[in-house]
């Protein structure tokens, strides 16, 4: 469905910097420049969808036409700790080791 006139979305280097920060990516100046151009093209391509009239269309929560998939609350075997830790870059046989984390998790 090629759109007649999709407005050209323009991403700024600042937008890309922010996304990179959220993704914990360190970009060089050249990378930032290239990605700004490339991401603008991708977003521009996808934004053709904006031309479709979706007023009467229900938002799709999931592409599969399935609902209510459950499992019963029954324990299954966990991994042995050695297996769980096996592919970690660093571990001490009990825990995963990561660079010092101070302060509170941003979680839950």
């Amino acid at each position: 469905m090629p759109a007649e006139s999709s407005p050209e979305p323009s991403l700024t280097p600042a937008d890309v910097k922010k996304v990179a920060l959220l993704g914990r990516l360190a970009l060089s100046g050249a990378e930032l420049k290239n990605l700004t151009a490339e991401l603008s093209q991708i977003v521009g391509f996808v934004s053709q969808l904006a031309a479709v009239d979706t007023d009467a269309v229900e938002p799709l929560a999931h592409p599969l036409d399935a609902q209510n998939v459950f499992r019963e609350d029954e324990p299954a075997a966990s991994l042995p700790t050695s297996e769980a830790l096996r592919s970690a870059p660093r571990q001490d046989g009990e825990c995963f080791l990561v660079p010092a984390v101070l302060g509170d998790s941003g979680s839950a």
Binding site: A84, C95, F96, L97, V98, P99, A100, V101
Partner: peptide, 9 residues
């Protein structure tokens, strides 16, 4: 005084 944090999942 270690530089690491330990993660328990």
């Amino acid at each position: 005084g270690t530089a690491d944090s330990r993660i328990d999942l």
